[in-house]
Amino acid sequence: MSGADTAWVGDLVHDEDTGRRGIVTDVRGGSMWVLRPEFGTGRWTSRAPERLTVLMPRERMSQES
């Protein structure tokens, strides 16, 4: 679930390591975050959730769509 400090599935985030915005699509084993671009296709992973800044939590994302 979304918290103030930790990105979770459905959250729009900024990945500080890649300089990209994306949506968290999966958290595997509690140690690998899978992200897809906010727009377009593709995906990447992050093993540093502390480097993912939540821009819009999942709850607000569903209200905006």
Rank of each mutant, 00 (worst) to 15 (best):
M1V: 07
M1Q: 14
S2G: 04
S2M: 08
G3H: 11
A4V: 15
A4W: 12
D5I: 14
D5M: 07
T6V: 15
T6N: 02
A7H: 00
A7S: 02
A7L: 01
W8G: 05
W8V: 01
W8F: 09
V9H: 00
V9L: 00
V9W: 00
G10K: 07
D11K: 07
D11C: 05
L12I: 14
V13P: 02
V13L: 06
V13W: 05
H14C: 03
H14K: 05
D15C: 11
D15G: 13
D15A: 07
D15H: 09
E16N: 14
E16C: 08
E16A: 15
D17T: 07
D17L: 15
D17I: 03
T18N: 07
G19S: 11
G19W: 08
G19H: 10
G19L: 12
R20I: 01
R20S: 04
R21D: 02
G22Q: 05
G22R: 07
G22F: 02
I23S: 04
V24W: 06
V24F: 06
V24E: 11
T25D: 09
T25G: 13
D26K: 13
V27C: 03
V27R: 10
V27Y: 00
V27N: 08
R28A: 13
R28S: 13
R28N: 15
R28W: 12
G29P: 02
G29H: 12
G30D: 06
G30M: 03
S31T: 03
S31Q: 13
M32D: 11
M32G: 01
W33R: 04
W33P: 02
W33E: 10
W33D: 11
V34N: 02
V34I: 05
L35T: 11
L35Q: 02
L35A: 07
L35S: 04
R36M: 06
R36L: 01
R36E: 13
P37Y: 05
E38Q: 08
F39Q: 12
G40S: 01
G40V: 01
T41N: 11
T41E: 05
R43E: 14
R43F: 13
R43I: 01
R43W: 12
R43H: 14
W44S: 06
W44M: 11
W44H: 14
T45N: 08
T45C: 08
S46L: 00
S46M: 01
S46C: 00
R47E: 15
R47V: 00
A48F: 09
A48Q: 13
P49R: 03
P49C: 10
E50F: 05
E50V: 09
E50S: 08
R51C: 09
R51V: 08
L52Y: 02
L52T: 00
T53K: 09
T53Q: 04
V54P: 12
V54L: 05
V54R: 12
V54M: 07
L55T: 00
L55Y: 00
M56W: 06
M56C: 15
M56A: 09
M56G: 07
P57N: 12
R58V: 12
R58F: 04
R58L: 00
E59G: 12
E59S: 13
E59Q: 14
R60I: 09
R60A: 14
M61C: 13
M61A: 04
M61P: 14
M61H: 10
S62N: 05
S62W: 11
S62D: 09
Q63L: 15
Q63Y: 12
Q63P: 06
Q63V: 11
E64Q: 05
E64Y: 06
E64V: 13
S65T: 03
S65Y: 10
